Amino acid sequence: MSRLSVPNLETVAGPSGQIYAQIKKAIGSVPNTFAAIAAHGPAALKAVLAADTVLAAGSLTKRDQETIKLVISEAAGCDYCVAAHNHLAKLAGVKPEELKRIRERRATGDEKRDALIRFVRKLAQFSGTVSDEDFAAIKSAGYSDAQLVEISLAFATTVFTNVFNRINDTEIDFPAVA
């Protein structure tokens, strides 16, 4: 059971109720993490959703975005986010065997994706600090300067949800990850 209370999503009004209605209309349900964040910090959830809108309009593929989020979540040990981003990556077309390899810190066999994974793991491991060699490797893999901005944004929003879910001990409402 999550630590923070969440009101009945069907009856809540005000800013939280408006956000719940928007999310439900867009994706059919309100994930537990979004429900808890909106209940206690609707502006924070709006910021996360705005960042996701920016990412959706960017040049990173949805597969790359979810790969980034899964790698960060796995590094942080956030079971909720690992389940969520594993599921969302699968919906974006990442194959189950690739997802397993990502979670197990093994190469996927896709050179560009593996370069992204190594780069994001370095970001997570060294608090965002990368060497000249790490920078050269991600650039030579074909990622643009604009995509480095997008990688940074995906990283930042995922760290927020990882930390929040660890504080809240958010009940997982995505398919379990073996």
Rank of each mutant, 00 (worst) to 15 (best):
I117E: 06
L99E: 08
K112G: 03
L99H: 13
L91W: 10
N86T: 13
H87T: 02
I117T: 05
E111I: 04
L88T: 05
V94Y: 15
I102V: 07
L88A: 05
A107P: 14
K90Y: 12
A84I: 06
D110Y: 15
K100N: 13
C81R: 02
R121H: 07
L116P: 13
V82Q: 10
K100F: 12
R118H: 15
D79R: 13
L91F: 05
A124I: 00
Y80N: 07
T108Q: 13
R105C: 04
L123Y: 00
L99T: 01
K112R: 15
D114R: 11
L116E: 00
R103G: 03
A76N: 07
V120S: 09
N86K: 15
R105G: 04
K90R: 13
T108I: 07
E98K: 14
R105M: 05
A115L: 09
A84C: 00
R103Y: 06
E104Y: 10
I102T: 01
G109C: 12
G77R: 04
G109W: 09
D110E: 15
L99D: 02
E97S: 15
L99A: 10
R118I: 04
R105I: 02
D79I: 02
K90E: 10
G93H: 07
A89L: 07
N86S: 15
H85C: 05
K122Q: 12
C78K: 01
A89S: 09
R105T: 09
R121P: 03
P96I: 04
R105N: 05
A83W: 01
A84T: 03
R121C: 01
E111L: 09
A84E: 00
L116K: 12
A92M: 01
E98F: 12
R105W: 01
A89W: 04
D114A: 07
G93M: 08
V120N: 03
R101L: 13
K95S: 13
K100I: 10
H85Y: 03
K100C: 11
G77T: 07
C78W: 03
A84N: 00
L123I: 02
K90C: 02
V82L: 05
R121T: 05
E111W: 10
D110A: 14
R113I: 02
V120L: 02
A92N: 11
A76G: 00
A115T: 03
A92P: 11
R105Q: 02
T108M: 11
G93W: 02
A75G: 13
L116C: 08
K95M: 11
L91P: 05
L91A: 04
A115N: 00
T108G: 12
R103E: 01
V82G: 08
E111A: 14
A124Q: 00
A76S: 06
Q125H: 00
G93F: 01
P96C: 12
K90T: 10
G109K: 14
H87N: 11
K100D: 10
C81D: 08
K95R: 13
A115K: 09
E104S: 14
R118M: 08
A124D: 01
R118P: 14
T108C: 12
R121G: 11
K90W: 10
R113Y: 09
R106C: 11
A92Y: 11
A89E: 02
Y80T: 05
V82W: 07
C78M: 06
G109D: 09
K112F: 09
T108N: 12
L123D: 02
N86M: 14
D79S: 08
Q125R: 00
